[in-house]
Design a protein around this nucleic acid. Structure first.
Lengths: 144, 144
DNA sequence: ACTTCGGGTTGTACTGTACAACCAGTTGAA
DNA sequence: TTCAACTGGTTGTACAGTACAACCCGAAGT
């Protein structure tokens, strides 16, 4: 097996290991906000509101899944819906103040965790690692 | 925000994005073998058999979860249990021939997928990406 | 011999997910 | 202008994966 194959094998194995663990780790760290909910809230913040359909398309989720997730987030008071006056079918979703606050808390503690894990990396390595992940995910997105 | 913070932020975001997608992608690619089942089978192959408890410890899963996963894999004919003659409580799990074959098939097609995704990477980048992932996961394991 | 320990299973409950059927607005074409 | 097709969203249903707690059984140490 070539060195190249070897590297691909390692990348495959390690990314898989990471994926397997990620949800459980997130759940342990933030029992109050699942990885998916967190992601959806972050997207809402990022986009300053969007439609449920947009979330579904962006994250490759079924619209029913998004509908239920959003309902849960609404029940928790983290999200509110505003009917679009131009098209009464659509509900534009927005973060509430509580949602924004919760998101900020979770983001902050995630940030701390990541910083700890990466504390002994030098800046050049961090930079390269980040760019590799971006490149990998961009390629992934392109084929899905 | 420093360049360092920026890189950490990106790493966090991209790893999270990857994790979110991994299960769904795996399920689409291999409806016959979930990411978890695949991982368990791979571990069995790697270790040439082990106990359910070992799987639970290694993957931070509850023993009941492993018990059910293993039952499913046994029903599918991919795994067999052999009672340990020295301790009648323990069942040593082994891949069956069908299990090994299925694992080989899935491994092969996963390998192809990863090779495609990484086709235009040069060898030095692959090598560094692999080593970064190893380093990251090793650090992660240490704290869990 | 009795207690405690360790490996494993079962009951139960919850989350995340998909698919299909549906409802309610919107839009375009006959 | 009306009706069919489309679009955004919800609900019914089903399933995988997971955890926790209660339990069973065999092993080990006192």
């Amino acid at each position: 097996m070539s060195h190249r194959d070897d590297s691909v094998e390692t990348i495959q194995r390690e990314l898989t290991a990471f994926a397997r663990r990620a949800r459980a780790t997130a759940a342990r760290m933030h029992p109050e906000l699942s990885l998916v909910s967190f992601t959806l809230l972050a997207h809402l913040e990022d986009q300053r509101g969007c439609r449920a359909t947009d979330l579904a398309a962006h994250y490759l989720l079924d619209k029913s899944t998004v509908s239920r997730q959003v309902s849960a987030l609404e029940r928790l008071g983290f999200v509110e819906r505003r009917v679009d006056p131009d098209d009464h079918r659509v509900q534009v979703l927005h973060l509430t103040d509580e949602g924004a606050e919760m998101l900020a808390n979770v983001t902050a503690s995630r940030r701390v965790a990541f910083h700890e894990r990466l504390a002994d990396w030098d800046e050049a390595d961090l930079d390269r690692f980040a760019s590799y992940l971006l490149r990998y995910n961009a390629a992934q997105e392109a084929v899905e």
